Deep mutational scan, measured.
Amino acid sequence: QRITLKDYAMRFGQTKTAKDLGVYQSAINKAIHAGRKIFLTINADGSVYAEEVKDGEVKPFPS
């Protein structure tokens, strides 16, 4: 399943989102408010992988 960072954070909370991605909650808040195009893939085992689309390139998040 693929979902935006904002939607994932709204569904699970910023604290869990940060923990799942290995970053601080403040980084999640800042990324959402900056309007960054970050998409999360939720794997069947429950693990989460995030990618950011920037300038036409897709890069892992966090980099």
Rank of each mutant, 00 (worst) to 15 (best):
K54R: 12
I42D: 02
V58K: 09
G46E: 05
A44F: 09
K30H: 15
T41N: 11
P62L: 04
T17V: 07
G13N: 02
N29W: 12
A50H: 01
I28F: 02
A31H: 03
P60S: 08
F61W: 15
S47D: 07
D45E: 06
T41A: 06
N43E: 11
I3W: 13
T41R: 06
T4S: 14
K54F: 15
F61L: 03
V48I: 13
I28Q: 00
D7W: 05
I28Y: 01
D20G: 04
K37I: 12
Y24C: 15
G35H: 10
K6S: 10
T17F: 02
R11V: 10
R36H: 06
N43R: 12
K30Q: 14
L21F: 02
G22Y: 04
K16F: 02
V53K: 06
G35C: 07
P60Q: 08
I42V: 11
P62C: 04
H33W: 10
A34Y: 07
H33S: 13
A18E: 03
G56C: 07
F61K: 02
A31N: 02
G46S: 06
D20C: 05
T41G: 05
M10I: 14
G35L: 08
G56Q: 07
K16W: 02
T15W: 12
D20A: 09
K30I: 12
D7M: 06
Q14H: 13
S47T: 13
T41Y: 15
K16T: 06
S26M: 09
A31D: 02
L5T: 01
S63Y: 10
G56D: 09
I38K: 00
L40N: 00
V48M: 08
Q14A: 14
L21V: 06
R2F: 08
G35Y: 05
V53H: 11
G22F: 05
L5G: 00
V53C: 11
A31Y: 08
A18M: 04
E57T: 12
I3M: 14
M10K: 14
K30M: 12
Q25F: 08
I32P: 00
A34E: 14
R36F: 06
F12H: 11
P62G: 07
A9V: 15
I32G: 01
M10Q: 15
Q25G: 10
F61G: 02
D45N: 07
E52C: 04
T41V: 14
T15V: 13
V53E: 15
A27V: 14
D20W: 03
N43S: 11
K30G: 11
L5K: 00
K54L: 15
A31V: 07
Y8P: 01
D20Y: 04
M10R: 10
I42Q: 06
Y49E: 09
G22D: 07
K37C: 11
L40A: 03
R11F: 10
M10C: 13
Y24F: 13
F61I: 03
I28H: 00
A18K: 02
V58M: 10
I28W: 01
I32A: 02
V23P: 02
T41I: 15
P62Y: 04
A18F: 02
F39L: 07
A50I: 03
V58Y: 10
I32W: 02
E51D: 07
E51F: 09
A34G: 09
G22I: 03
V23W: 07
I3S: 06
K16E: 06
R36V: 05
G56Y: 06
Y49T: 14
I42C: 05
